[in-house]
């Protein structure tokens, strides 16, 4: 078969450790993105024009930039121009937090704007304060429509962290390459098996999220 190397030595453990780095970068970025994105989204719905313009420029900047360029910008750019030496992992978390917050902010904005004015009017007529209205009426409705695309965003972040190896982070794809290089001469088909294993690992992580997103979507359209 030519895949025995996968079960020799510490290969599996190394791959799982790499996957751990992938998940650590992703989950920390997501955890930081959620509060930032919610705040950004709420600010987006404010009437303040300057605030909206600033947020719009930020969002568009993050959107049009390839994530790889952002990684290089933060990792090399901050070192050369600001004298800040981030580790690859910290630089990655900064980039994916900035990206996740921007995308989530836009999702929150859309979800909040989709709620009709009449919901605010109904709550007002019942005597609720604007805080009570937001917490009990608006936010729960926004969350319902917000969850499916947010889970999709998490999947996108997990997949895109594979770029982090290009700034020296040893995440799961980088580990895979090391394994391929190590076994290059003994196992000619090693690359294929290793990449298949990587694909399987990503699938195991992302497929349940995809199912969750679809289930949430079905539920929210009830």
């Amino acid at each position: 078969m030519g895949a025995e190397f996968l079960f020799q030595g510490a290969t599996i453990q190394r791959l799982l450790a790499g996957l751990g780095v992938t998940l650590r970068i992703s989950l920390i970025s997501v955890a930081l993105s959620v509060p930032l994105g919610v705040v950004m989204g709420v600010l987006f719905t404010r009437k303040n024009r300057v605030l909206r313009a600033v947020l719009r420029v930020y969002l568009d900047f993050i959107r049009v930039m390839p994530q790889l360029v952002l990684l290089f910008l933060v990792f090399f750019g901050s070192a050369s121009s600001l004298g800040l030496n981030f580790s690859g992992e910290v630089a990655s978390i900064i980039v994916f937090t900035a990206w996740g917050a921007a995308e989530l902010g836009d999702l929150v904005r859309a979800a909040l704007e989709a709620i009709p004015q009449s919901q605010y009017d109904g709550a007002f007529a019942l005597g609720l304060t604007s805080k009570q209205t937001f917490a009990r009426v608006i936010l729960p409705q926004a969350l319902r429509s917000l969850l499916p695309p947010s889970v999709n965003l998490v999947t996108r972040i997990i997949k895109t962290t594979s770029l982090c190896m290009l700034i020296g982070v040893v995440e799961v794809v980088r580990v895979g390459q090391q394994i391929i290089d190590f076994n290059r001469f003994d196992y000619p088909m090693g690359a294929l098996w290793t990449y298949a294993t990587l694909a399987l690992l990503y699938f195991v992580i992302c497929w349940p999220l995809s199912l969750l997103s679809r289930w949430l979507e079905k539920r929210s359209s009830r």
Binding site: P116, S118, Q119, D121, G122, A123, F124, A125, L126, G127, T129, R136, V137, P140, Q141, R144
Partner: peptide
């Protein structure tokens, strides 16, 4: 003030029940 608002009730054309409860 909130106190004065709660002394009047209003029912709208489009009912506007809160769909999340």
């Amino acid at each position: 003030d909130q106190q004065a608002r709660t002394r009047m009730g209003m029912v709208f054309q489009s009912y506007d029940l809160f769909p999340n409860m």
